[in-house]
């Protein structure tokens, strides 16, 4: 961009680039106004707080309890969906059976269904009088309004990630590879661990990480299915929301900045994972 600009008008190098085309101006202007300005406001507000009080709020017992509830539950949901998603992707790509196309389309439901609706219906279905909750009640398993409910909500919203990252990879593995392994005398288990798993592992881990990141930031479905009691089933997003409702802007900023920084680190890790997966291309 600059090389082109300098050759034409060297004296205008850092001025608002009038020689940029209209799409460029729209892109830069829109991003500055709608994307970067909010980030700047957040970080500048956070930086005005003294480090000690920031640390104190960020590591208060209630905050630590919400981090624990958030990350532990999100990890359990992402891990279960890692395994389930692997099997789902395999079944959808390799097997033919009636209703397959419908199931395949249903995978995207968590992306399309508003989270508030997901939380509402999961809270009902898994409540003690609900379709599934009433079957669990005799076993003394309560789901809605407990941390288990939060886990179910996270299971729902993180379901598509592993399936959708794995499907194209499975599609590309030539079945000749499996045949070659078999004809060379490998057992099905060896074929799976030595031939199939290596290219599928990066995509699986990427999918798990994406689902985990999504679950960590989830609010809508969780707030409806949980009782939102601190130290029990309150997650970090709900804590931020409650602090804002109580006009505790500083507290909300501290927890919000902490969660944002964690999210950005996760984004970095996901990008590295994706780069790792590309080795097999």
């Amino acid at each position: 961009m600059t090389a082109n600009a300098t050759s034409r008008r060297p004296h205008r190098r850092w001025a608002w680039p009038q020689n940029l085309s209209i799409p460029w101006q729209v892109t830069i202007g829109y991003m500055l106004l709608l994307l970067l300005l909010p980030f700047a406001a957040m970080f500048s507000k956070a930086s005005t707080l003294p480090i000690e009080s920031f640390w104190e709020t960020a590591t208060a017992p209630i905050a630590l309890a919400t981090y624990q509830a958030t990350f532990f539950t999100a990890f359990l949901a992402a891990a279960v969906n890692g395994l389930a998603g692997f099997i789902i992707a395999w079944v959808l790509e390799r097997y033919q059976f009636p209703g397959k196309r419908l199931l395949d389309a249903a995978i995207d439901l968590p992306f399309a269904l508003p989270t508030a609706v997901a939380g509402l219906t999961l809270a009902t279905v898994y409540s003690e009088t609900g379709w599934i909750g009433s079957l669990l009640a005799p076993l003394k398993v309560r789901v809605s309004f407990t941390i288990t409910g939060v886990w179910i909500a996270m299971l729902f919203i993180s379901l598509p990630f592993v399936v959708r990252t794995l499907q194209p990879v499975i599609r590309e593995i030539e079945s000749e590879l499996e045949e070659a392994a078999w004809s060379l005398g490998a057992s099905p288990w060896q074929t799976f661990t030595r031939v199939l798993l290596p290219p599928l592992l990066p995509a699986t881990i990427t999918g798990v990480a994406l689902g985990f990141a999504r679950s960590v930031g989830e609010f809508g479905s969780v707030v409806l299915i949980a009782s939102n009691v601190p130290f029990q089933d309150m997650v970090a997003s709900v804590l931020i929301f409650q602090k804002l409702e109580q006009y505790d802007i500083k507290g909300a900023t501290v927890i919000g900045t902490t969660m944002l920084l964690i999210s950005l680190v996760m984004l970095l890790i996901i990008n590295l994972l994706q780069a790792w997966g590309r080795r097999y291309d």
Partner: peptide
């Protein structure tokens, strides 16, 4: 990648 509540908080 931004948690949706944090997006609202920024605004």
């Amino acid at each position: 990648s931004v948690p949706s509540v944090v997006a609202g908080l920024m605004l």
